[in-house]
Amino acid sequence: MEERLKQLQQEATAKVEQSVDLKQLNDVRVAYLGKKGPITEVLKGMGKLSAEERPKMGALANEVRDDITKAIETKQQLLETAEIEKKLTEESIDVTLPGRPVNSGTHHPLTSVIEDIEDLFLSMGYTVEEGPEVEKDYYNFEALNLPKGHPARDMQDSFYITEDLLLRTHTSPVQARTMERREGKGPVKIICPGKVYRRDNDDATHSHQFMQIEGLVVDENIRMSDLKGTLNVFAKRMFGEDREIRLRPSFFPFTEPSVEMDISCKICGGKGCSVCKGTGWIEILGAGMVHPNVLEMAGFDSKKYTGFAFGMGPERIAMLKYGIDDIRHYYANDQRFLTQFGQKEFK
């Protein structure tokens, strides 16, 4: 009997080995381990054995059964893995084909520039102020030290709606309005972005509508060195840590002293090239110390308070940053233009 069992074990193991698929393997299982299988058959003859041999034989039979079961399980795992692999190979796809496009829009480049500037100044404790685009002559000019008949009014020919109303020519009236609201109490620390309008024919460098963003800080003891330091932070953050700034004297009716800020040219590294017209420097913005007349008109005591203001054109900044050569691109909304600004810039 013992021999018969061992023989069965060998037979079964061999058949397990020979199985090429799960079905054959299952046939082997049914043939050897099933209720009508040879092992069960052998065990039926146990009654003929002595009481001593019976448990031994029982144990052996179980051992054989277990071994066969184990062999089947091992083989089954192998076969299953092979089967899965075969199936997966059949399922394979061309991973180099294009993915399903996800619809996605982009910020207009001018919005990106404005939001970047806003975020920088927000982090320095500024708030963002807004004001009307149709403005009173008073806020657009007079409150900014540009009385009627002032020669500098020629500098910014404007679109009038009535004798007293016009499309604002700069965002500075927001400064005047904000200061007025604060009723002579500092600090004022604001940034004012928005659309402005001038009587210009649209061409590559002029637009009758464009954006401006201005900043204003008024408090006791605000110094011109604070203006320079602030502009330096701005320039490095906006254009790169390796850029230098320089201030040049200039003139604006609402500031005194007035300055223009240049940044070092990135393209030539200051040696002079066509972009910087050979000077090594690129003009970025105008700024200055708030004119005492402007402070007084907005209700601030110019003996106690000083302030600085700066203003710039997002169109120009985007032109410099991205090499855009025609201001009209910003307002044509050509998707082939706009989609180029989807990529986030990190700094």
Binding site: E118, F121, L122, S123, M124, G125, Y126, T127, V128, G186, P187, K189, V217, D219, E220, N221, I222, R223, M224, S225, D226, K228, G229, T230, N232, V233, R246, L247, R248, P249, P257, V259
Partner: peptide
């Protein structure tokens, strides 16, 4: 005074005052 002395000689500082946190409305 400033322009003749040279704007390059103006130091760079940041406003020294009580700063409130900035933020969007």
């Amino acid at each position: 005074v400033a322009r003749l002395y040279g704007y390059d000689h103006i130091p760079m500082t940041l406003p020294v005052h009580e700063t409130k946190p900035g933020g969007l409305s």
